[in-house]
Design a protein around this nucleic acid. Structure first.
Length: 420
DNA sequence: GCATGCGCACAAT
DNA sequence: ATTGTGCGCATGC
């Protein structure tokens, strides 16, 4: 409950700030929510974090500072060209989507992408010492910062200056610089920490949300989807980067326990390309475009958020396209690695489901799933008509959601059951 | 002091 | 070229 209430408040606040032409940053958001609803900044920060994780809100680095976006709105516009590659794009997108979900991981903290063009920076940016070392890969891989794209694994960062990464929460903190009088409330505890940590570069380990490593993610996260994108298809930007190589990914961990989780896949290697997507929806959107190149049918890994902290990954290989289906292309099949999936699906909470669809590029519709309290079990029980008419969402997206995601998830789940 | 409105330069497409 | 973003300043409370 409160959550939905906060979601509404926060999104409304972001919209409000935007309409006023004021940067929707943590400080302003906290202040406005407090003023309008009496909520404490800390709480607002926490709720905002959640929204970021579920990608209802996108944390972006725009013009050097952190801003928050209403994912539902952002997404649309971002898509640039659709052209060609629709198919491919689409396909990828879906892929992306999925992955996106896993972005959560990283996002966990925030998704923040650097709005900047280069994400690569990110890595550097944070300056943290980064993660790079942290192991890259472990799982994190997936996203790894896209930086990866970066050229070489280690280096990518060259260009970029450092950008501030923000912690998930710092109110004003986002900015590297210590803001003098920051935040209203947020400043209160967490905020400060975050802020300080940021600048310091090191975040206290304690910070759950993002471990130090997380930082990098942040940047990319949002829009920058870039990163994700890049990773997605290695091919893309090779210019700068080389393909994805086994780059180092230091991914951030999700707040919770990514680390542990991460490792699971051995695949990551491949994944690397794949995973990238995890980003934000928006990213996803872009992905579509950009990504197009990606090879169509490669297996991808998604991570699905399971409970709050845990994320599970699922490998899906789909050929060109599920999406395509929707889009009209051809159909293909999707394989999912059941192992995790099935369990996961049953364990998905309402938030996980919403997060999944949000990451899949349907943030607005994700809200409908949340409103209807659709969790993993409910999702398995949904019929076509439920999706098309029971959620009160537009037919177009509803069809895509059903064909591309619901059906696929159900099929996978039941196939798995059969095996078992 | 604080919230809001908005022109305009800049960034992203 | 178009459109989104948000700084910086003006205004109102």
């Amino acid at each position: 409950m409160s959550e939905s209430k906060y979601r509404e408040w926060i999104l409304d606040t972001i919209d409000s700030l935007r309409s006023r032409k004021a940067r929707p940053d943590l400080e302003r958001i906290c202040r406005m929510v407090r003023r309008r609803h009496g909520s404490e900044p800390d709480r607002t920060c926490a709720e905002l974090e959640k929204l970021i994780q579920e990608q209802t809100v996108l944390k972006v680095n725009y013009k050097g500072s952190i801003s928050y976006r209403n994912a539902a709105k952002v997404q649309r516009r971002s898509r640039k060209k659709d052209d060609v590659s629709l198919t491919a794009a689409a396909a990828r997108r879906s892929a992306a989507v999925e992955e996106a979900s896993h972005s959560d991981l990283s996002n966990g903290d925030s998704a923040f992408g650097a709005a900047d063009p280069d994400e690569e920076d990110l890595e550097g940016e944070t300056s943290m010492t980064m993660d790079t070392d942290s192991n890259p890969d472990e799982e994190g891989v997936e996203e790894t910062r896209d930086g990866q794209n970066g050229p070489s694994p280690g280096h990518a960062r060259e260009d970029t200056p450092v950008r501030a990464v923000s912690a998930p929460c710092s109110p004003s903190g986002a900015r590297p610089a210590p803001v003098p009088g920051p935040g209203p409330n947020c400043s209160s505890g967490s905020t400060l920490d975050c802020a300080s940590s940021q600048k310091a570069g090191g975040r206290p380990n304690s910070l759950p949300p993002s471990s130090p490593r997380a930082l990098p993610h942040n940047d990319w996260a949002y829009d920058s989807a870039v990163s994700p994108v890049e990773r997605q298809h290695p091919g893309m930007q090779r210019d700068k980067a080389v393909d994805t190589k086994p780059v180092v990914h230091s991914r951030a961990s999700s707040p919770c326990a990514l680390n542990n989780v991460k490792k699971e896949d051995g695949h990551k290697a491949e994944d690397s390309s794949v995973s990238s997507d995890q980003l934000v929806p928006e990213s996803a959107a872009r992905l579509q475009d950009e990504v197009k190149n990606v090879s169509d049918g490669r297996p991808q890994t998604l991570s699905v958020p399971s409970d709050n902290c845990t994320f599970k990954k699922i490998d899906v290989s789909y050929t060109a396209s599920e999406e395509s289906l929707l889009n009209g292309d051809k159909g293909d099949e999707i394989l999912v690695k059941k192992e995790n999936m099935h369990q996961n699906l049953l364990q998905w909470s309402v938030a996980d489901v919403a997060s999944y669809f949000s990451a899949a590029g349907f943030p607005e519709q994700a809200v409908a799933f949340r409103t209807q309290e659709i969790d993993g079990k409910s999702l398995l029980l949904m019929q076509r008509s439920d999706v098309l008419t029971g959620l009160s969402i537009r037919l177009g997206p509803a069809l895509k959601i059903y064909e591309r995601h619901v059906k696929v998830l159900q099929r996978t789940h039941f196939l798995e059951c059969d095996d078992i």
